[in-house]
Computed example of a mutant assay.
Amino acid sequence: MSEASTQDQSSNSPFLVSKEKGLTIISINDAPWNMMSMEFMDELEALLPKLKADHSVRAILFTSEGSDNFSAGMNLKQLIGKAGDQAALSALFDQRLRVLSAIENLGKPVIATLFGYCLGGGLELPMACHFRLAAKEGCKIGLPEMDLGTVPAWGGSARLTRIVGRMHALDMILRAKKIDGPEAYRIGLVNEVVDNDKLKERAIELGLELATNFPPLAMSEIMPVIIKGSDMSQEESLRMEREAVLNTMGSSENQEGMMAFLEKRTPVFSDRS
């Protein structure tokens, strides 16, 4: 992360935000455990609509400060105080579902780094992202809520099942199983496994590739087709795809892409007009 690009933030902020070209980097700021506190979720919920509306933001990366853990999940001390209040619990978990859905549906590619503990919410947030990169060594990835006498609460069971299939989801959730990076790659939970000391560097490299090499309008149109289309009939998904085609044909980036192809050069996609 470039210090020059880091926004003015307190060292007590639940996350730090920096920007490198079209890539916005959000780094959880509670090392070494990087808990996702109520304050973290409040500030993240406020930030996401701004990222969605800002056309200069073309990709997002979630990582964490330090090199120990991505996130050990929710701050359980904050949760215990609400344990007997059903209305408060519902509001708290509703917010988390809203936030993760907003990440998934930003219309911009979102990347997460997984290293150290990635447990509970520390896995559920990355599963709402579109790309996941895991450290080769030391990862403990899982949804261990069964050990706490409860079940995943941030959409973990639904997303995990869709990503890795029912067999692996049952194995991980019912056994509160923690897996490492190579195993996560084997079952299709992560896109890449990277040497620990290169993980954040590789994530930034991928983020910059997505932010600078591809047409943002076309990307924002096709992402809902892929994300929502998996829960639709093929006919409905094809209709969404057709709408995306019509919304992108004739745009400035479509014209640039076609001219670059004819002129045998690399296209330059700079706006969404």
Rank of each mutant, 00 (worst) to 15 (best):
I80C: 02
Q95C: 10
G156H: 12
A88Q: 15
L16W: 01
G122A: 11
W154A: 11
S64L: 08
V268C: 01
K21Y: 13
S71C: 07
P109L: 00
F269V: 02
E183Y: 00
P152H: 09
P224W: 08
L119E: 03
R98E: 06
G142N: 01
M41A: 13
N34S: 09
K19M: 12
I179E: 05
S233T: 14
V190C: 05
P152G: 10
P215G: 09
A128S: 03
E137Y: 03
L92P: 05
N213E: 12
K228D: 02
S230P: 06
K108Q: 07
R265P: 09
F15W: 13
K264H: 05
I227D: 06
C139T: 03
G81D: 14
A31W: 11
K21N: 14
M38W: 14
K136N: 09
L23T: 01
C129I: 12
F214Q: 07
N69T: 03
P224Q: 07
T248V: 06
I26E: 06
K178G: 07
A158F: 07
S27K: 10
E20M: 14
V164W: 09
I204F: 04
G120R: 00
G73S: 10
R96M: 04
N69P: 01
P144D: 13
F93P: 09
D42K: 15
L123G: 07
L89G: 03
L160D: 00
P182Y: 11
Q9C: 02
S230Y: 12
L262K: 04
M38D: 14
R239H: 10
A83F: 11
M249G: 02
E20D: 12
F261A: 07
Y117D: 11
D94C: 09
F15H: 14
R162H: 06
K177L: 12
M219Q: 04
A4T: 09
S233F: 04
Y185G: 03
L106Q: 01
E201G: 01
S220N: 04
L44E: 13
G250N: 00
M35F: 06
N29M: 02
S67M: 11
M167P: 03
K136R: 10
I141K: 06
P32A: 00
L114G: 02
A91S: 09
S11H: 15
G257K: 12
E145A: 15
L92V: 05
P216Q: 13
S233D: 07
L199K: 05
E221K: 09
I227F: 07
T63D: 05
T63Q: 11
K177Q: 01
E256A: 03
F93R: 00
P14A: 15
N247F: 00
G116W: 03
M41W: 14
M146H: 15
E43N: 13
K19R: 15
S13C: 04
D231N: 08
E263G: 00
N12G: 12
H55E: 07
N196A: 00
L119Q: 11
A260L: 02
E45H: 14
D180C: 10
S37N: 04
R132C: 14
V268W: 06
N34L: 12
G138R: 05
D85C: 12
C118G: 01
S270Y: 07
A153S: 14
E192H: 09
G73K: 07
I163E: 09
L97T: 15
S252C: 06
R239P: 05
W33Y: 10
M1H: 15
I222N: 08
R272V: 14
E236C: 08
N213H: 15
G250Q: 00
E221V: 01
V57M: 05
